[in-house]
Write a protein that binds this DNA or RNA. Structure first.
Lengths: 146, 146
DNA sequence: TAAATATTGCGACCGACCTTCAATTCGCTC
DNA sequence: GAGCGAATTGAAGGTCGGTCGCAATATTTA
């Protein structure tokens, strides 16, 4: 079951964070664009449409808080900007297919890596707590052209 | 068999790049620090010791060229700076174990992902040409403390 | 050796992100 | 609901990795 907007606000409040309009607006933007991997500037662009007074620094600060509370999850696609998605998605071990040509990002699920993690622990004494798997290549649309 | 310094210079020359002292010095630095994942600034620091006149921009430009020629391979560990390693290492499908606590980076090899790539191609029509797998966790030394 | 062209170092610039600070707002208590 | 203290905000400026423009210089080819 996925968290509701209200349950996430409650999570903020539990940790003594104040429920400001700005934080609500930013959080709502993630519900409205659930499918995308949004960067800070993209979020800023979205919330500014209806709330032009919200500053970029506030967006950065809010994203940092939401990531620390495990509400959002940071991802990097190598284009120099950090992107965010709902953290709950991460427990399904979904990973990313990144098109080198058009930059489109798709997802796929797998559970293959869990067995790999325990194998690593045995072999190397390294305690794995998270992993990131990215595949680079050409999506269906970009395989003919280019 | 790994390429020699001279064979890599030849590769540059084939593509109509000039063999300048700066490029040789930067390339040599990678032979002298083969085990590490060096960033542009680190390379600059190394080459400046014996050749203080080499500019940072030249280092960036040279690394870009060497990466485009598949002599070096770019890697990102999420610390905001691009790092480089010899590309030949990549064909062995080695991946990285990144310690969240001390930042140490270890490597491990696997061939597991090749079968996954063909599986993806069938399932999603996505043509995989490269992949990146990173595990975050705690290395042996950091598991007790922290 | 000289001309044509690529490359260099420098400094200015860029974009993503963070910090500082005065002004405002939240959440609590009365 | 007013008042208080602490957290938060927007704006401006700063940091940092990386890039660009340009005049000076070096490499290659003839």
């Amino acid at each position: 079951m996925r968290p509701t907007f209200n349950s996430l606000c409650a999570k903020l409040q539990q940790k003594a964070y104040k429920i400001t309009p700005q934080r609500q607006i930013i959080l709502k933007a993630f519900f409205d664009h659930e499918q995308r991997h949004l960067s800070a500037e993209e979020i800023h662009g979205i919330v500014k449409q209806n709330h032009p007074e919200i500053g970029l620094a506030t967006v950065y600060r809010t994203l940092e808080i939401l990531a620390n509370l495990d509400i959002l999850h940071k991802i990097e696609f190598g284009d120099g900007r950090t992107r965010y998605e709902f953290a709950e998605a991460e427990v399904h071990h979904h990973h990313h297919l990144i098109c080198i040509n058009c930059g489109k990002v798709m997802e796929f699920n797998d559970d293959l890596l869990e067995s790999l993690e325990t194998w690593i622990a045995k072999k190397t004494n390294f305690l794995v707590v998270d992993h990131q798997l990215k595949f680079y290549g050409y999506c269906k649309d970009c395989q003919c052209r280019e």
